[in-house]
Every structure is written in structure tokens, then in C-alpha cells.
Design a protein around this nucleic acid. Structure first.
Lengths: 250, 250
DNA sequence: TATAAAGTATGACGTAACGAGAGAGTCAAC
DNA sequence: GTTGACTCTCTCGTTACGTCATACTTTATA
């Protein structure tokens, strides 16, 4: 089922403008658009949106959310399970706040005493242990993880892996002024895809997301552009095309 | 007990910078300061802060919060009671969200079906009826001039004035189902007339005109009807009668 | 079928509520 | 009497959109 932007906004309870924004920053781009340029969202897009709002609820900045959900190592189920724990914790805090308000009303009416600390029970967000856990779990990891792999391997050691990577990068760099949908480009990108899947399995979505990260995160960009200026951007485009064409096929 | 800024920040679970900010915009200025300029907060300040955070929690912009809590007609107890209802409602929504996440996890694992609407259950803030009520109750309140005057006055002046005003409003509200020409009503209205003339001189004509504004301008109406539904209309009639009878007498 | 009404797109600019940092003064403790 | 934790004011930056303005597209209605 395809939905236009307003319907999505209504279902999710956010503004159309917010969806525009999410598209603009590459956090959630609709799968397809009409010829007139209207955004058309699929059910998959909705699932992703749901996921995004989960993270937003617990106060992650959009930038970080983007990193997290497009990270190849993102485990959605784990995220959901932690999220649930956090919600339960939040409810506990809410109960406390309700009690606090109750007490405050009593305090106003009948002058039962109330300490300063009591007056704020349930307010302090920083106390939620699960939010802490979440921050640790996803805080900087997503980027650093894959970055570490890239940086350590390609630069320092002359392992087999880094040789293969270099080879592919070099090949891609040579093609970077061709159109990214050209056959050679796509073949080279496929090689890249296969290579990555040796290191850990990548869904096509993750692959596409990874490509986007190449241009979004300057640490990646720098690293990649060492092989040729503009390579990161080129790869990003080519990877997106690759992912899209192969997704349609099944 | 006096507290320095950091202690307050810790108790309330907000940042020092936030308190600076609140001071800067006149939302919460500490009762006194040291010679060196250090902010010193009293218990009363803390109570006010609690109140502020209550409103912030439900998404009111600080500007509106300022209008609300410094409005002469602000009824703290009423606010708290509504707030409590909202918290309970919020808890209900939280329960729903927890269920949604649970379902989503199931959906991921075992492929139980899930509708788009289901995926977002518990998210949509705009559905909370009490938030709606709160918005209506305090939404547009403080645009009128006398309110602006009050905002610029010092705390003491403010509370004195607002106390007198509240007293008169309350008295009138109690009489609002009597006929507006009744003796009690007219006595109360006279009190109002005298009071207004303390703030600036009103001719009987102006007084009558003001009364008409109470029903013509819904900002006034709302403001006044907070003390009792129909009070504005009642006052309008009573003021007209008062003006007319006293004009005839001379 | 025409025409209004509603929806959508892309900018560009605005804004709320602080965060972050600089530079300087203040206070409690060892 | 100096260090380290706090505090002040000031300024600039940031996030996540809101709010027009202007123009095009689609749907509803006469």
C-alpha cells in the first residue's frame, strides 16, 4: 500500500513538515515518488518511521538516530527490547509523578509537609538506568565500529583484507567520473557488496544506508576520498542504485 | 532555606543554564541574590519551578507558561488537578505503547500481522483529551492589556492586585445566577467599579463599554469565565445597569 | 467540463530552548 | 594563599522543526 505524505503524518501523529525534514536530512526518504514529485510511502517506510519515533521518544538527536538505524550492525529486535524496558521504567516514573502531584495538592489544601526533593520526584530524566544503557549501547558505537574496521585495516596492516579493499577502492576510483548506473560501475559496486558480505552480512537496505553514510559522515568521506576525490559520493550513488535495482527484482 | 543555583538544578533535574535562561526571560527569577550577584532560591521559588516543569512536561512553551502562572486568575489547584488527570491519561498511553512494542517484537519474530495504525498506537500526542482541555483552558488567555500591565509589575504589587481582583471576581461569580439588577449584584459591581478606578479613572460610559467588551471579545470572555461560566455575560449586564442607574441619578 | 478547494513541492527565513565556550570574579578548604 | 569547584555575564551555535511565499497537481463539486 502506498500513502501520500499527509496520511502518513496523520497515522504517525507528526507534521507534514517533519516528514519533509526527515527526507531532507536523509533520515527517512520515501521509497518512491510520483512523476510530479509527490512522496509515496510504503509499509516498510512506515516501519522505519515507527522505529525512528521510538528513538526520538527517548531523546536521541535525529543525526544519531540516522547513524543507528542505518548501521549494518543495528539489531532492531535488541533495540525494541531495550526500548520496552525503558517504557516500563518510564511508567514507574510516571506513577511517581502522579503521587507527587497528589501530595502537592494535599500539601496545598491541608498543609501536610513536603520536602524539596519530594516535590520533584519523578521529574529527573537522567535517572533512568535504561536510558543510560541505551546511550552506552548506541551512543558512539555504530560509527566507530565500522570506522575502526576501515581505519585499522586499510591503513596500518597489510592484511589480505585490506589489499582486497584497496583493490576495489582503486577500481572504483578509476570509474568515479562515469555515471554511477553504468554497467562497469554497477559491477564494481557489486564486488564491493560481495566483499562486505564476507565481513558480515549486509541487507540491501543496510548497504544503501552505508553508502549514504559515506557522504554524511566526514570521517568516512575522508577515508574513502583518499583514493580519489569524489569517490565517496560516487559510491554512495552507485550503492543506492544497486540496492534499489536489486530490491525490485525480488 | 536558601539554595544556590546548582543545588536547585540538581534537585529539579535540569541544567544550570536552563535556570539562567528562565531568569533571563523572566520566567523564574530567584527571590534574592548575594552582593556578588549569586542567585539564591527560596522554597517558594522551588514551588514555582515545580509548577513550571509541570507545564513544560505537557509541552507548553515557556512564554505561555509565564503568562499562565503570573496571570491573576491563575488557580494553582485547578491546574494541578487537571495536570493529574493528564498524567493518568499519559500513563494509559504509555501502557498502549508498551503493548505496541510488544506486538512489534512479536510481529518481527513470528509474523503476526499488524496494521499501520496499530504500529503507532500510543504515539499520537494530539489525542490526549486533557491536553486539549488544558490548551483550551489556558490557551489564549493573556493577550489583554490589563494582563500585560500586571506582568510588568513587581511580585508584591502583583499579588496584592491580583488578590483583590480575584476576590471580586470570586464574589461576582457566586452571584452570577442572580438577576443582575439585584442589590447584591449591584453592590459587587460597584466594588468592581471602584477597584477599576484605582487603576485608572473610568467614566460610567467607559465602564459600560468595558462590560460590553467582556462579551464581545472572547479573550476577555474566556479570561473572566474562568471564575464561573457565564460570569462575563452577567457582569456585562450588571455593569450596564449600574452605569445607567447612576447616570440617571445626577 | 470547468473551476474551486485541498494537497503537495521547494525554498528561505524564523524561532524556541537551551548547549557550549570564553573570560573573569567568588567562595570554601586544605 | 592557592587550588578547585562554583558562579557570573556575553556571545554564538544548534536542533527540529514552524511559518510563510510561490507554484504545481489532484480531487471534489457545480
Amino acid at each position: 500500500m502506498v500513502m501520500k505524505i499527509k496520511e502518513v503524518a496523520n497515522i504517525a501523529g507528526i507534521s507534514v513538515r517533519a516528514l519533509h525534514h526527515y527526507d531532507q536530512i536523509g533520515l527517512l526518504s520515501p521509497t518512491n515518488t510520483t512523476e510530479a514529485g509527490y512522496r509515496l510511502y510504503t509499509d516498510d517506510d512506515l516501519e522505519l518511521l515507527q522505529q525512528i519515533l521510538f528513538f526520538r521518544e527517548i531523546g536521541f538527536p535525529l543525526k544519531k538516530i540516522k547513524e543507528i538505524i542505518y548501521s549494518p550492525s543495528f539489531d532492531r529486535q535488541e533495540a525494541l527490547e531495550l526500548h520496552q524496558k525503558m517504557l516500563v521504567e518510564k511508567r514507574r516514573r510516571l506513577d511517581q509523578m502522579i503521587a507527587t502531584v497528589e501530595k502537592t495538592i494535599q500539601h496545598m489544601k491541608g498543609d501536610i509537609p513536603m520536602s524539596n526533593k519530594e516535590k520533584f520526584e519523578g521529574f529527573d530524566f537522567s535517572e533512568n538506568p535504561y536510558e543510560q544503557e541505551a546511550r552506552e549501547r548506541w551512543g558512539d558505537q555504530a560509527v566507530d565500529e565500522s570506522n575502526a574496521k576501515l581505519a585499522n585495516m586499510s591503513k596500518e596492516e597489510q592484511s589480505d583484507l585490506s589489499k582486497s579493499m584497496n583493490a576495489i577502492y582503486t577500481k572504483l576510483a578509476a570509474l568515479r567520473h562515469d555515471p554511477p548506473h553504468s554497467e562497469e560501475a554497477q559491477t564494481a559496486i557489486q564486488e564491493w557488496y560481495v566483499f562486505l558480505n564476507k565481513m558480515g552480512s549486509y541487507s540491501l537496505d543496510a548497504f544503501k544506508g552505508l553508502g549514504q553514510m559515506y557522504v554524511a559522515d566526514e570521517r568516512f568521506t575522508k577515508n574513502i576520498d583518499q583514493f580519489g576525490k569524489g569517490l565517496a559520493k560516487f559510491m554512495c550513488e552507485a550503492m543506492a542504485i544497486y540496492a534499489d535495482t536489486h530490491k525490485k527484482q525480488d
